[in-house]
């Protein structure tokens, strides 16, 4: 990029938005791939890279993709938790690439829970 004009700042800001938002953690949705040994063995890495590709392809800048340990239901791995801001987290089980794609467009983007893949809504009580 050569010399810029005031209006170019906005373009750079848009280009940087995802990087900056990811650091601020101020996102509309948070997707957690459970990456315990069980999850990884069942193919959680593939789910993660599918999610990363989807985010990249569609230029999404307000979704945080993160990992956590085993969710405790090892037989139903890979698992995914989707949490939209202000809503209860939804756990999805037995994930594969296609299911991930449909959850991404229906739940994460459009806000509709994909009931057929969902295990439960909400989290365990802690403490």
């Amino acid at each position: 990029m050569g010399k810029i004009r005031p209006e170019d700042l906005e373009k750079i800001r848009e280009r940087m938005a995802r990087t900056i938002n990811m650091r601020e953690g101020d996102a509309r949705a948070r997707v957690t791939v459970h990456m315990g040994t069980c999850g990884i063995a069942a193919g959680a890495r593939k789910i993660m890279s599918t999610l990363m590709d989807l985010v990249e392809e569609r230029g999404i800048d307000d979704v945080v993709v993160t990992t956590s340990g085993c969710a405790g239901l090892c037989s139903r791995e890979p698992m995914l938790t989707v949490e939209l801001k202000g809503e209860a987290p939804v756990k999805y089980v037995d994930m594969d690439e296609d299911k991930t794609k449909s959850i991404f467009s229906e739940h994460i983007i459009s806000g509709k829970v994909v009931k057929e893949y969902a295990l439960a809504i909400g989290s365990e009580r802690v403490g």
Partner: peptide
């Protein structure tokens, strides 16, 4: 530009 899911701000 490539963006990461996790940034380690070292």
């Amino acid at each position: 530009m490539k963006s990461y899911r996790t940034n380690v701000m070292l």
